[in-house]
């Protein structure tokens, strides 16, 4: 007999208005224990507000929040933040400037056993040597790890991270992402982190929830939301994509670029999404002309113009070396079709 495990976080129908403007509009989200979930959305989509409601820093106008099975917010119920067992890592880290690293980390675990717990968590984040230093003496990355250690110390039911990497410069950000993910996995924590950076969300999460206009529009594993976006908006938000019109029937779709397989049941006029990495370039062909090339080393992004004037992007390995003006052949490996009423904007 299997019992559906209680989700670590369950938000249902959260509504929040600021001065009459809806910021959250029936926001619902469920996160199972031990999962790292990336809450991804453009700025102003309400991600941070959702996080702050889960943490207990804001009250929703309506809706419920449950953490580890007990109701935190709901009709007639309000649990203050200090009794929610939620660890929070702030964008600016919010380390107490007047307290040492050890005292910061020990802040949430008063009483006997504090020293041992502090030592263990500092060891987990690789900062055992920094216990007696003060926040202003640490680098940005170290401050972030202290903030995470402090949030993990009381062994919370969930850890929330608000734009955790936005204060770090690009090279350090990649390294910190890996480190933080490793620490969270090692601590077996349930974590929700907010970001507007799709690459960050896809790289760090077990699951990604995409937000738009105050609600979650799609949840899934990173590969799922990227390759099977629910609509054109999600498709564009998660990465480069070009769209061509087509007509689907009987398990295939025909477009100006050829005929591709689609799931049974899709029929009629559709918008066909083509990701740059699905477009192969064949030297010596004559389907398209190279217009522009951005060379990144590990790959290159080509802007192609088709015979009918249509633009298409192709991401391929560093070779072949192509220059603007070169004629190439193309082959599209796979596509995703959306009903033409999908509402994307060209």
């Amino acid at each position: 007999m299997t019992v559906e495990p209680t989700p670590a976080i369950c938000c249902h129908g959260l509504v929040k208005r600021f001065d009459g403007d809806p910021v959250l509009d029936r926001f619902s989200l469920s996160v199972s224990a031990g999962t790292i979930l990336g809450l991804l959305g453009p700025s102003g989509s309400g991600k941070t507000t959702a996080l702050r409601i889960i943490a207990g820093f804001e009250r929703p106008d309506s809706g419920t929040v449950q953490i580890a099975g007990s109701t935190m917010v709901g009709p007639g119920r309000w649990v203050p933040p200090e009794r929610r067992r939620v660890g929070m890592v702030f964008q600016d880290y919010a380390l107490f400037p007047h307290l040492s690293v050890a005292t910061n980390v020990g802040y949430g675990v008063p009483g006997p056993g504090q020293d041992a717990r502090v030592a263990r968590v500092l060891n987990l984040v690789g900062l055992s040597g920094a216990a007696r230093r003060y926040p202003h003496e640490l680098s940005g990355g170290e401050q972030q790890r202290v903030a995470l250690a402090r949030a993990l110390a009381p062994d919370p039911d969930v850890v929330l991270l608000d734009e955790p990497f936005s204060n770090l410069d690009a090279p350090r950000r990649d390294r910190m992402r890996r480190e933080i993910r490793t620490i969270l996995v090692e601590a077996r924590a349930t974590a929700v982190f907010v970001t507007h950076d799709q690459e960050e969300a896809l790289a760090m999460s077990d699951r990604v929830a995409v937000m738009r206009d105050g609600r979650v529009v799609q949840v899934g594993e990173p590969w799922e939301v990227y390759t099977r976006p629910g609509d054109c908006w999600v498709a564009r938000f998660l990465g480069e994509a070009e769209f061509v019109p087509g007509t689907a029937s009987g398990g295939s779709v025909s477009t100006a670029l050829g005929t591709f397989p689609v799931p049974e049941g899709v029929s009629g006029p559709v918008e066909v999404m083509i990701r740059p990495e699905s477009v192969e370039v064949l030297p010596g062909g004559s389907d398209a002309v190279v217009v522009d090339r951005e060379f990144y080393g590990h790959d290159q992004l080509l802007t192609l113009r088709l015979a009918d004037g249509r633009r298409l992007l192709s991401r391929i390995g560093p070779l072949p070396a192509l220059n603007p003006g070169d004629a190439v052949g193309i082959r599209v490996r796979e596509v995703v079709a959306f009903p033409a009423s999908g509402g994307h904007q060209h």
Partner: peptide
Amino acid sequence: GPHLEEASRSLGRGPLATMLRVTVPL
């Protein structure tokens, strides 16, 4: 920053303890 007080709250300290341990010292 208000985040300092919020951090203290989510680490299990109530409003009064937060005021005495975080706000007043700062």
